Computed example of a mutant assay.
Amino acid sequence: MEYIDTFTISPKCQSIIIDQVQSIELEKQKILQCGINYGKEAFSIYRRSPDMYMLLYTTGGKGLLKTSNGEWALETGSVIYVPPNYENGFIINPDENPDLIWDVAWVMLENHKYWDKSLPHDITYQDSQSGSLLFKTIICLSESLSFNYPLGDALCKSITEQICLLVNTQTASHSPKALTRLEHVYQQTKSQLHHPWQVSDLAALYPCSEPHFHRLCQQYYHQSPIAYLTQIRMEHAAGLLTTTNWSIQHISDLCGYPNPTNFSTRFKSWSSFTPRQFRTQFKPQL
Rank of each mutant, 00 (worst) to 15 (best):
D5W: 05
D5T: 08
S15G: 13
I16M: 02
I18Y: 03
E41F: 07
P50K: 01
G63D: 10
G70Y: 10
A73L: 13
L74P: 08
N85I: 05
N85K: 12
N93Q: 03
L100M: 11
D103A: 03
A105K: 04
V107S: 04
M108E: 14
Y114C: 13
K117Q: 14
H121N: 13
I123G: 03
Q126G: 10
F135G: 02
K136F: 04
I139Y: 03
I139E: 04
I139H: 00
Y149P: 01
Y149R: 00
C156E: 10
K157M: 02
Q170F: 02
T171Y: 13
S173Y: 03
H174V: 05
Y186H: 12
K190I: 07
Q192M: 10
H194D: 02
W197H: 05
A203D: 00
L205Q: 13
P207D: 14
Y221V: 01
H222R: 11
Q231R: 13
I232G: 05
R233P: 09
E235D: 15
A237L: 08
A238S: 05
L240Y: 04
L241Y: 09
W246V: 09
S247T: 15
S247Y: 07
I248Y: 10
I251L: 09
D253E: 13
P275F: 03
Q277H: 11
Q277T: 11
R279P: 01
